[in-house]
Simulated scan of single mutants.
Amino acid sequence: MSRRFEDRMFLALIAGATLLFLWLIATFFDAILWAVVAAIIFAPLQRALMRWRPDHPNSMAVLSLLTLIAVVIIPLMILSSFLLQEAALLYQGIQTGKIDFTQYFDQIRHALPRWARLQLNRVGWGNLDGVREQLGSLLSSSFQTLAAHALSLGQRAASFLLSLTVMLYLSYFMMRDGPRLSSMVIGAVPLHPARRVALAEKFAAVVRATIKGNMVVAVVQGALGGAIFWALGIGGALLWGVLMAFLSLIPAVGTGLVWVPVAIYLFASGAVVKGGILVFCGFFVIGLVDNFLRPILVGRDTRMPDYMVLISTLGGLELFGMSGLIVGPVIAAFFLSVWEIFITDRARLSAPAVREEEVKP
Rank of each mutant, 00 (worst) to 15 (best):
160 F>A: 15
202 K>I: 07
230 W>Q: 15
271 A>S: 10
51 R>E: 10
72 V>M: 04
140 S>F: 07
123 V>W: 01
264 I>L: 15
147 A>P: 04
105 F>K: 00
168 L>Y: 00
1 M>L: 13
283 F>S: 11
114 R>Y: 06
99 I>R: 06
84 L>H: 14
195 R>A: 13
135 L>Y: 10
116 A>F: 05
78 I>G: 04
52 W>M: 11
97 G>K: 03
10 F>C: 06
205 A>L: 07
333 A>Y: 00
158 A>E: 14
36 V>H: 05
310 L>K: 14
345 D>N: 09
204 A>P: 02
77 M>A: 12
120 L>F: 09
36 V>K: 02
232 L>Q: 02
357 E>V: 13
174 M>L: 15
245 A>I: 03
305 P>N: 13
62 V>Q: 02
255 T>E: 13
80 S>Y: 09
124 G>L: 03
27 T>R: 15
297 L>V: 11
296 I>G: 06
39 A>L: 02
154 G>R: 07
287 G>H: 01
270 G>C: 02
194 A>L: 08
294 R>G: 04
88 A>L: 08
144 Q>H: 12
62 V>K: 05
213 G>K: 05
263 A>F: 09
353 A>T: 08
230 W>T: 09
53 R>K: 13
230 W>N: 10
166 V>E: 09
356 E>Y: 10
109 R>N: 12
190 P>N: 10
2 S>Y: 06
281 C>W: 03
7 D>I: 13
114 R>P: 05
108 I>N: 06
271 A>R: 02
252 A>E: 11
242 V>H: 12
188 A>F: 12
137 S>K: 10
187 G>S: 14
125 W>I: 05
207 V>R: 02
170 L>K: 00
35 A>S: 11
57 P>K: 02
63 L>T: 03
111 A>S: 14
129 D>V: 09
211 I>H: 04
47 R>I: 01
38 A>Y: 01
274 K>T: 06
170 L>N: 01
27 T>N: 15
54 P>T: 07
98 K>C: 05
122 R>Y: 13
258 V>R: 09
347 A>M: 07
272 V>T: 11
78 I>E: 04
40 I>G: 03
354 V>A: 15
144 Q>W: 08
148 A>K: 10
290 D>R: 10
348 R>F: 00
197 V>E: 14
327 V>P: 00
325 L>M: 14
3 R>A: 11
